[in-house]
Write a protein that binds this DNA or RNA. Sequence first.
DNA 1: TCGTGTGATAGCGATTTTCTATCGCCATTG
DNA 2: CAATGGCGATAGAAAATCGCTATCACACGA
Lengths: 299, 299
Amino acid sequence: MIDKLEFLLALAREKHFGRAAEACGVTQPTLSAGVKQMEDSFGVLLVNRGSRFQGFTAEGERVLDWARRIVGDAQAMRQEVHALKHGLAGRLRLAVIPTALAMVETLTSPYRARHPAVQFTVFSRTSTEILNEIENLEIDAGLTYLDNEPLGRVNAIPFYRERYRLLVADDAPLADRDEVTWAEVAQVPLCLLTPDMQNRRIIERLLRETGAEPNITLESDSMILLYSHVRTGRWASIMPARLAASLGLTETNKLRAIPIVGQEASQTIGLVIPLREPMTPLVSALVAEARRVAPLLED
Amino acid sequence: MIDKLEFLLALAREKHFGRAAEACGVTQPTLSAGVKQMEDSFGVLLVNRGSRFQGFTAEGERVLDWARRIVGDAQAMRQEVHALKHGLAGRLRLAVIPTALAMVETLTSPYRARHPAVQFTVFSRTSTEILNEIENLEIDAGLTYLDNEPLGRVNAIPFYRERYRLLVADDAPLADRDEVTWAEVAQVPLCLLTPDMQNRRIIERLLRETGAEPNITLESDSMILLYSHVRTGRWASIMPARLAASLGLTETNKLRAIPIVGQEASQTIGLVIPLREPMTPLVSALVAEARRVAPLLED
DNA sequence: TCGTGTGATAGCGATTTTCTATCGCCATTG
DNA sequence: CAATGGCGATAGAAAATCGCTATCACACGA
């Protein structure tokens, strides 16, 4: 029964019988039969088909909701029993917005010190992807913005606040300033994340609120790419202060990370976890770690 | 998987492999094998055995907790999908304290008018049995006292308040009074419910608070038995006002139901349902009905 | 010491599961 | 408009699992 529900979850993710089957480690006919069995047992069609996958019926959507919950609970049960016997072990799957990637270490390092048997998989994702993947049980927790866009059905634990700095070469026009305003920054050509990232949308909003039209000369979904461009000293960017610091950018003496003042431009970043009570032991330990570390990160 | 979890639930109820198997509609070896499979798959012993059932291990208790939840969710899912397709149908299992039995009709009648396809099974139970059976998914909802003894992991919906009357023959000593005090009642020989019933404990407490030692000449776990004794006119009892009224007791002219005054002796009776979000459609409709009817029962 | 009750085990037949191979449908495309 | 490719359903056989009957092993009481 539960494995059939997992078929349904995979189908919701992949929207494709073949790929869903592969994801479940079975062949396509097996998955087809599994779905059909559920439909027979409920006496209701769950999936709209017509020579290809065409989404779920209303009943299918409801079953999907229950499936997420039941499958999640079954996984949590297994994990908890295992932890009772063998201590905390297993793999914790995290998804993190690019600008917070450098902060993950402050969670994972003490976590690992406490629970050496736990392994990590960390994905770089957009904030919307993170929420989706939590819903679909593809990850155990995420690190993302808490305040701006609606979170949906997750629990949130505040972790730290992000403040922005202008990164410029030390011979650039604004390089000699101790601080700059958003209005001034809006005049500078910038390289930023792509617009599917919430960070970009936040920064663009802040720039636009000054009345100016920002000039984004380069965009990418990779912080590494932005970072490498800024490192040349020929590009300017806006980065969270902590990220710049943890990359050691300001120690090169070729670059300056200048605080941007003028309005409360700080965003809360936090852990988001599935809305399940109780949580799995691995996630529970992560939340505990976040609560321990968060006070150390306050400004 | 889910059916194995049901094996575990049955075992918790019956504390006996054979009876649990029978309750699940399988043979004892099948249930034994099912439990063993779970133990193998978890790598942990769940049940302490020694030529007979000796309770669950710590891990087993945790699994049991999850099993209650997962099995309950799976049932709720089935019910909801069925309701989506065929409208509200199925069997609603209720357990009710004896003194509230006569009030059940005020819920079931309008419920049935609204949802004719729903069938009812109503058990007469003590308040503690009700809470246990909700935990173990043996009933869908209960009707019991909300205030006095701790409820545990259930949701409660207040339904009505119970006030007590002294029932006596019209030629008995107190029969000519418009109202009596608890102190006066404590002097009368009474027939009441047995002490495993919360109603008895409540009334006994109220009597004792007057300083007197109550004289319980007859006790039973059946309201019908108490009722038939009181009907002879030779016995006195204490009953909730509504119960006396709905039994038509006071219309015989042989009996009088005299309000007992002196202290706030009223108990809230309410619906208790499993602490699950969302609830099953059948229970959800019952809660809606209770909320509709409750205002009509206020004094 | 024997009888009884309880749960585990063995062995076997029935059922279910899942695979491979293939079909039929539809959309795309040259 | 016919060929092609992708997608999901179906058929049939092999494999695995399930669940039963019968029986065993053990503990406890009479």
